[in-house]
Write a protein that binds this DNA or RNA. Sequence first.
DNA 1: TATACTTAGTAACACGTGTTAATAAAACCG
DNA 2: CGGTTTTATTAACACGTGTTACTAAGTATA
Lengths: 330, 330
Amino acid sequence: MAGVSRTTVSFVLNNLEGVSISAGTRQRVFDAARKLNYHPNAAGRKLVSGKSNTLGLVLCQSPEQVFADAFLPQVIFGVEQAALQQGFHVLLKQVEPDDTKGYARLINENHVDGIILSGPRQDDAEIRRLYRDGVPVMVMGQLPDTSIPSVDVDAAAGARTAVQHLIDLGHRQIAMITNAPLTYTSAQQRRDGYLLALKNAGLKSAKSYIQEGNYTPASGFAAMTRLLEEAPRPTAVFVASDVVAMGAILAIKRAGLRIPGDLAIVGFDDIPLAEYFDPPLTTIRLPAFGLGWAVGERLIRLIQNDGLDQNNVFMDSELIIRDSSGANIH
Amino acid sequence: MAGVSRTTVSFVLNNLEGVSISAGTRQRVFDAARKLNYHPNAAGRKLVSGKSNTLGLVLCQSPEQVFADAFLPQVIFGVEQAALQQGFHVLLKQVEPDDTKGYARLINENHVDGIILSGPRQDDAEIRRLYRDGVPVMVMGQLPDTSIPSVDVDAAAGARTAVQHLIDLGHRQIAMITNAPLTYTSAQQRRDGYLLALKNAGLKSAKSYIQEGNYTPASGFAAMTRLLEEAPRPTAVFVASDVVAMGAILAIKRAGLRIPGDLAIVGFDDIPLAEYFDPPLTTIRLPAFGLGWAVGERLIRLIQNDGLDQNNVFMDSELIIRDSSGANIH
DNA sequence: TATACTTAGTAACACGTGTTAATAAAACCG
DNA sequence: CGGTTTTATTAACACGTGTTACTAAGTATA
């Protein structure tokens, strides 16, 4: 329609440097493209370039985990934003935690240029294979014994801060409820921060003072019920998940005890509702959006072969002091 | 490597019917494919077939909306599952609410075969254009004055049930806090259900008894504070969002009133935490996962040119009776 | 045995793009 | 004016697949 070859059209529309096209021709191409409502076909581009301009966001969490994970949307949006900024798309893929190999297809069949793995199992062999084969890969969370680049919240430091806060308030009998079974790294890290804070303060930690939660309020209720039967009863509890803390708080109230008077609570995550708990929850705020953004942005750098300044990034969390820890009561 | 042509390979691996290939050849092809770790290239397929086997999931919600939307992950997972079952992928795309045309590119450039639009603006012109052009499109929610196929919760019916529940408990002064500004369809529907329940019971509805929320607990706190100053003070409030209800509940407690003794509350959504509110929240449970599943499954049918049994689907919600409405107190 | 039909396989085209090497025309230089 | 460089444009190939039309050989039928 513009009276030129396909090649010329390609040159003009891609605004290629080092090729000279007269202004008149250029304009004719633009006009024709507009008139024909022309849009370059992605499949054609992908085929010839070998690039898909797409990030694979693989979620390994089980459905229960996800439903309880109040800030997964923020993480996803962070990835989206980072991708958008570089003209990338985001392909979402959920895989059952035990379904290894479910996502390798994305790479093998060239659907995506790289993969973000959220919440992988410790023994996930597929991600290691992809990494070894030179596939651009980022992990959200941590994988031991590998040099796979990752972005994670410095959960241990956050947990340590949370517990230190309780220690500073004078508590000596501090228990903990984990966010998940200790087979999960994120649960281990938070417990390690708890233990470290106790150790630094010269406090002892009893095994029975650590109860396991599993993402749900119900598990928090059960765990707290067990803790209330401990002797001596703890005067403060670090609950490594706000959602789990919600259940724990209900257990405390049902037992007729008061927060923070009888029992101080510090949570973890700072979900949007935490501020509206009764009492408002002292907790650790996670940079959920920033986490997603960072992991997306770094994966794109890997894809484009720009180097990473550091292989493993740990993002800082922030102590948000509200009423449940008793710090605001004078 | 198998000593046959590409054509034969294609026939064998796609298991094409109506073509006869000897068992020996077939096996040689399989063996070679395995040995070479062969995976068909998606770009090549898409190019020749014109199909991308991908659904575009477009989220129009603003970030604040999304962060507060506790069951967005469930919806997304529902779509994922439906897609997975038919061998489709899901491409996620967030667009600013005012950024029309942001997602048409997905179709124009053939990234996706169809689009699911979640939470569109009422005046979204782009979706109407796509629909008119014959693009497979599904809307989550509702769009007035169109015949675009949609899946939605029957929010009006749910709201009506919630309010009827309060009426059945003997309440006559029933106020409402909306989940969002009334410019949003979902807010309108829930309000309409509220009004209908009142009307059917022969009750009058005062304008000042309807206060607006905007997805956040903070807005619920503010709205409830206004309601508490009304004379006569309502004896029950229907809050059209559990998250907003969380803020409303805090306002009630701050005012020294008791739930449900002084003020009964019914929420909407049944977020995972609703059961652990203090008091546990009577609310309307939405089939979030089912919603996502239905919209995904129907979009695929549209893409494959199977007809839809009905153009607009309304899914039922369910009244979950807990303590906040006072029904369990005898 | 001549004919028709089935079986097994392939050559050739098409999809829509990016890129390299080549060509023709124009401009510059001595 | 002959030769060299620059400018504007294109022909031809490549990417990896699905599909149609065709061939050749084998097998049943009359």
